[in-house]
């Protein structure tokens, strides 16, 4: 659907990663000593109650923020110690983000939103590829529409397209189905999985949803900033993803 060469995924390694926020109530460890190794091409679900650090963890992996402690490596590159300009390049070339609310640019049409990602990498025929991708997602007619003219489900599909058009080797999705109904949720997940499979990218996805979590290769549960369960370690004893 995206076409082109299979780039293959990247491996992600987290080593003693913590992220501490200073709040007026005292420092809070949103992420607390997380060790994780994700081989290339794997799809991973991160579950856990809200506010327990999942989004922060994803930001860290996505090189949007720096950890207070520990190391993050993507494809054996020490991302957490790169300069900001270097990390910009990493985000641009290697990573694709999908957010909970679509977060499309409101002043760009569907195709422009997607082309922007390509333009960031200096791709020449950005529009053509974007239109193609939209077509395969069944959104060909909506290419020129603006986000406020699309339904929630349509917007999220455009967001997914935006996240994958540049064939990233690591796809990060933060509750991509959070705002969608059941039907649309599963559609989006299937889309992500299909794209991931085609490109061979590594997929890390945060979700609340049991049904969604079950569709991925691997699952970890996060609680109070720590990994409390890992399907790789103990495939049977996976606690409830929505843990009380």
């Amino acid at each position: 659907m995206i076409g082109g060469v299979m780039n293959g995924g990247v491996s992600v390694t987290l080593d003693g990663v913590s992220k501490r926020f200073a709040t007026a109530a005292g420092p809070v460890d949103a992420v607390n000593g997380v060790d994780l190794e994700i081989p290339a091409g794997v799809s991973l679900a991160i579950t856990g109650p809200s506010g327990c650090g999942k989004s922060t963890l994803l930001s860290l992996v996505g090189a949007l923020e720096r950890p207070s402690q520990g190391r993050i490596e993507i494809a054996d590159r020490h991302v957490s110690e790169m300069t900001e300009p270097e990390r910009v390049v990493v985000r641009r070339e290697l990573i694709g983000f999908v957010f909970q609310s679509d977060n499309l640019q409101p002043f760009l049409s569907a195709v422009e939103n997607i082309s922007l990602q390509l333009a960031l990498s200096g791709v020449a025929d950005a529009y053509e590829r974007s239109l193609e991708l939209l077509g395969t997602l069944g959104l060909g007619d909506s290419a020129g529409k603006f986000p406020d003219q699309l339904s929630g489900g349509e917007r999220q599909r455009v967001a997914v397209a935006r996240a994958v058009v540049h064939r990233p080797r690591l796809i990060l999705a933060d509750e991509p189905t959070g705002a969608l109904d059941v039907k649309n949720s599963l559609a989006v997940i299937d889309l992500l999985r299909a794209v991931q499979a085609e490109v061979g990218a590594t997929l890390i996805l945060i979700t609340h949803d049991e049904a969604v979590a079950q569709r991925l290769d691997r699952r970890i549960a996060l609680l109070d900033g720590r990994v409390v369960a890992d399907s790789d370690a103990d495939p049977e004893r996976m606690p409830d993803p929505t843990n009380a």
Partner: peptide
């Protein structure tokens, strides 16, 4: 009400 709290506090 407990969605953003840790398990103990939520409970």
């Amino acid at each position: 009400v407990g969605a953003e709290l840790d398990s103990d506090n939520a409970r």
